[in-house]
Design a protein around this nucleic acid. Structure first.
Length: 109
DNA sequence: GTTCTCACA
DNA sequence: TGTGAGAA
């Protein structure tokens, strides 16, 4: 596969990923985290699902799903929920920072 | 399918 | 920290 095709696929994947929005049932199914627990984490302010314009059902984008996965891993490693949440929060913030810096320094090509 | 709430460990 | 169950 050539570089052009790879670049095109990367853009496609990113586009799909950024549009991927699913309900709690599917999130629970793919992450293995019970729906009840996902709602519980939201109640504690740890995750912020995106509300649909119409209706009251929770919607989860890929960032939410990623967060749920990461927190679940840390819990399995013995972290408390609060500690796991804070760690995930800090990591994502740092990653965002790095990419923002990178975006500033990178010229359009 | 989804929501909330009360009770419980 | 999380679950069960019922009702809407």
């Amino acid at each position: 596969m050539g570089q052009k095709e790879q670049a095109a696929n990367a853009l496609l994947d990113f586009d799909l990923l950024s549009r991927l929005i699913v309900g709690i049932g599917e999130v629970s199914e793919i992450t293995g985290v019970p729906q009840r627990k996902i709602r519980y984490w939201e109640e504690k302010g740890i995750i912020q699902p995106v509300k649909e314009v119409e209706g009251t059902t929770r919607r989860y984008d890929y960032i939410n799903i990623k967060k749920i996965l990461l927190i679940q891993e840390l819990l399995n490693d013995g972290y408390t929920l609060d500690a796991a949440a804070k760690k995930v929060e800090d990591r994502m913030e740092n990653i965002n920072k790095v990419f923002l810096e990178l975006a500033k320094k990178t010229k359009t090509r």
